[in-house]
Design a protein around this nucleic acid. Structure first.
Length: 426
DNA sequence: AATCCACAGGAAGATTAGGATA
DNA sequence: TATCCTAATCTTCCTGTGGATT
């Protein structure tokens, strides 16, 4: 053991290994980095007092062992649905403990837990330490899990509030139907459900029985306006950052930019956090508008890179065709304006090279407009008079997307693919 | 004013994939 | 495990059209 230990300690001295220590010491701008993460739960949620009170009013019967109404809450992303419900839930639990009432509060994100089986399993496993053995990931018939769940919560007693975040992601409405009727089979315990959704039309094509029983109360969270976003950001700045580490026009800028994007508080926070991190990395003493601009473009680029990376193969081939044509045009000095037809021809060539079978032009046209909607390219319809009507296709990001496509093994050989010198009118 | 290119983009049917059900 | 259902994907066939050219 001795020599080995010596080896390592001496290594440490030899190599310039204290990279983190160096970064740790360089006094950054943060006091509490966590406070800028979207998961952070502040003690006060600005501009949501009304929503908090409304929800609390609906749930308060739980503390008297009465069944609270089921609630549906709508609101776009970043309007504080999750934060408000979690906040109220926490308070409810506290009050329950204080008054020694049996109140349970379960939060489930249906985007992750998206089938009836896993939903029931998830709820049931909340009570494992109070009673019984765990329900396995798979194997049991669904109705048996349901029966077991009822048995378990009956034993638990009291009132159980279940939060279903992103309910619209839940597959099939059977789960909701069963849950909404669960109270009829229970004596000792009351269950109430709070569903969160960012899709206003969600209930429209829901089983009417579920709709009426779950939508006893409805709440709508409006988007934040720029001023409200400023208050939220300022609150976080106070917790997260050192004094005097931020220009006073930074928060208004972040708020304004996020307000344009439907008042999404998460966006605003991400933008601010990224600005702060960029400022810190560039060893600036204060966060300035410059950093916000940088952060904004970085977020945008990150988004595009992520989207491109997860694109289906066919779309990738189409995108590559566009990129190659663009490169070719740049080299030959041909002016922009790539048409659908041109893209399709190259796309077909690429498919032959990769031994992929190609889609029809009709379909490719749809995929092109899909790429347009994702913001990777811009494709607007133009008329070239006698020479027809087509789309004018350009990549919208100046960044080199070819590198990202190259990660895909299939594309390795294609990136240097030469477009045949085609003589084309105009 | 008439023509006509090179597609856009709608409708409907076929095919496929993934999940539910027996 | 087989098969059945549904939603997404893709094809086929189609009609429509802005504006340079004739």
């Amino acid at each position: 053991m001795g020599p080995r230990r010596f080896f390592f300690t001496s290594m440490k001295k030899m190599v310039n290994s204290d990279i983190f220590g160096h970064l740790l010491k360089s006094n950054g701008l943060f006091i509490n980095r966590e406070a800028m993460r979207p998961t952070y739960m502040p003690d006060i949620l600005p501009h949501r007092e009304k929503e908090i009170n409304n929800l609390a009013a609906v749930l308060v019967p739980a503390l008297r062992y009465e069944t609270p109404s089921n609630v549906f809450i709508y609101g776009k992303t970043g309007t504080g649905k999750t934060a408000v419900t979690k906040f109220v839930g926490k308070e409810l639990l506290n009050k329950g403990k204080e008054t020694s009432k049996k109140v349970n509060f379960i939060y489930i994100n249906c985007e992750i837990v998206d089938t009836q089986y896993r939903l029931l399993q998830n709820i049931a496993n909340h009570f494992i330490d109070t009673w019984s053995e765990r329900i396995p990931f798979t194997g049991w018939p669904t109705d048996e899990v349901f029966a077991k769940l009822k048995q378990m919560i009956e034993k638990e007693g009291g009132v159980i509030v279940i939060i279903l975040d992103e309910v619209d992601k839940l597959k099939g409405d059977e789960a909701l139907y069963n849950l909404s009727r669960i109270n009829t089979d229970l004596k000792n315990v009351r269950v109430s459900i709070v569903g969160l959704s960012n899709d206003l039309k969600f209930t429209e094509f829901l089983d009417p029985r579920v709709k009426s029983s779950l939508g006893e109360e409805n709440m709508i969270f409006p988007p934040y306006n720029a001023g409200e976003l400023q208050d939220i950001l300022n609150q976080r700045v106070g917790i997260a950052l050192k004094m005097d580490s931020i220009d006073e026009d930074v928060v208004p800028l972040c708020s304004a930019l996020a307000a344009q994007e439907h008042g999404d508080a998460r966006r605003a926070l991400d933008l601010l956090r990224m600005s702060a991190e960029l400022a810190e990395r560039s060893k600036s003493l204060r966060i300035t508008k410059k950093h916000v601009r940088l952060a904004q473009s970085k977020i945008e680029i990150d988004r595009i890179v992520e989207v491109v990376r997860t694109l289906p193969a066919q779309s990738k081939l189409i995108l590559l065709a566009i990129l190659l044509q663009e490169k070719y045009n740049k080299k030959t000095g041909t002016a922009g304006a790539i048409t659908t037809g041109e893209v399709y021809e190259i796309y077909k060539e690429l498919c032959k090279k990769t031994r992929t079978d190609f889609l029809t032009q009709r379909r490719v046209a749809d995929l092109i407009s899909e790429l347009d909607m994702l913001g990777i390219i811009t494709a607007r319809v133009i008329s070239k008079g006698r020479y027809g009507r087509t789309r004018d296709i350009k990549t919208s990001s100046s960044d080199d997307l070819i590198d990202i496509l190259q990660e895909d093994d299939v594309f390795k050989g294609l990136v240097n693919y030469k477009i045949r010198g085609q003589t084309r009118l105009m």
